[in-house]
Design a protein around this nucleic acid. Structure first.
Lengths: 243, 243
DNA sequence: TACTCATTTTCACCTGGTGAAAGTGAACTG
DNA sequence: CAGTTCACTTTCACCAGGTGAAAATGAGTA
């Protein structure tokens, strides 16, 4: 790979879901590029539309990348396919609905339907959730190669609330239960006051390629919602098999 | 701009919504790059994840760009804000719902809710619609600077069906009516058997920044749906003004 | 087996990218 | 108000990394 290309992509890779707009100095700090080089790259990316420059001189991801990314067939097709089922689930429950895939040891949210009157959730499309503390995450983790769990355990499990499962043995048992029940629960493990129940979206090859969840107030009966979310996940899975 | 950056972006810019996966030879033809240069760029973009290489050697937009693009705040925020209202509209009508913005003389679809039992529509998120022949397009065109209409007329209005408005005078009158009524109709002008009604999403500054539509069978009473779509558009517009 | 065509690789050449240093401008402080 | 600081933004001598013509490879076809 050309040095220039690698460095150019490195600038883009500075941006994550919860990254606020970045200044040039912050991009320099994150990439290690000399200031004028970073300046030139940022200027070029901005000219192309891949970055937007704000009036205060900070940069954020630009519309050009949204336009290109929207063409990515793999996840566009999954989103299109899943959205009607997520709609049905939303209509039946009026809670928040999320669709996530496994990516870089996180659950990456690729579609989301919010009810502003349900529990507030912090996730956005393109945002990431911890695998060990969320419904969608546990589903994905339960069906991933064991090395992933091992790597997570080696890195340590962040305790997000006092309910978060942070002990390796407890998590392993929980994941076994996920595989057995075909769904996963998170009860105030990610955020106090919020719970979720998720089910796997299964590709015809048998691989779990995504997970769909309902996120609701912790007072809501997640067991009752479990049937609904599994039904939606089954519908999506069936659609993956084609007409 | 560095020559390399410009050319690298040029490779990405080969891809449009209805572009099938492209072979290296096709990318060469579209960019004018020498074969080894294009080869190297494509290899680099693939290594980074911006392009995916299919087993048959053709390339398409990769997931990395989806992930980055999903972070683009401007349209992500609009989509998030609009989606609940689109949900409500879908729930009320069970027809296809689209949200589009003006981009490069087209209506660019940025969110879409399909009902598979309604009329089939060809549009996908990231796809483009002609301004003169669609509900969303006419809304955007009606509120755009007059130079845009002049440019479209100079380029000629493609006749997509026998109902498409292709005469400049008729279109100008239709757009005046859109501005007066606060909504636009397309009656089999885009596709035979399909019609749509759209309304403008207005920013607090007064600028029409998007348009939301219902797409249904041509047999459906669009006049009745007009009230609903205007209600949704008004809700989105109000949300733009903040809490 | 020979031919064709779409890649994929090689490598001599040179030009375009680099980054240390300098310049600029805005904000802050005394 | 003048001086200082800091985050950019620009300059330009230098050279290394990118280029593309030509060759090689591999798959498909007749």
């Amino acid at each position: 790979m050309t040095n220039l290309a690698r460095r150019l992509f490195g600038v883009l890779d500075c941006f994550e879901a919860d990254t606020p707009p970045l200044s040039l100095t912050e991009i320099v700090a994150r990439t290690g590029l000399p200031m004028p080089t970073a300046w030139r790259y940022v200027r070029e990316l901005t000219a192309w539309g891949g970055l937007d420059r704000l009036p205060d001189g900070r940069y954020r991801i630009g519309f050009r990348l949204w336009k290109l990314g929207a063409l990515s067939p793999v996840y566009r097709d999954l989103r299109e396919l899943a959205l009607p089922y997520m709609q049905d689930l939303y209509q039946a429950t009026h809670e928040n609905i999320q669709l996530a895939v496994l990516d870089e040891r996180t659950a990456l949210c690729i579609e989301k339907i919010n009810n502003l009157r349900s529990v507030a959730t912090r996730t956005r499309v393109g945002g990431r959730l911890p695998l060990h503390a969320t419904g969608v995450g546990k589903v994905l983790l339960a069906h991933a190669p064991p090395e992933l769990l091992a790597a997570l355990l080696a890195a340590g499990l962040p305790r997000l609330t006092r309910h978060t499962i942070a002990q390796p043995g407890r998590l392993a048992r929980a994941l076994a239960e996920v595989r057995e029940q075909g769904m996963a629960f998170s009860r105030q493990e990610m955020s106090l006051g919020a719970g979720s129940v998720a089910a796997p979206v299964v590709h015809p090859s048998g691989e779990v390629i995504a997970s769909v969840s309902i996120v609701a107030h912790s007072t809501v009966d997640l067991d009752r919602l479990g049937i609904a979310v599994r039904t939606a996940a089954a519908g999506i899975s069936r659609s993956l098999a084609g007409p």
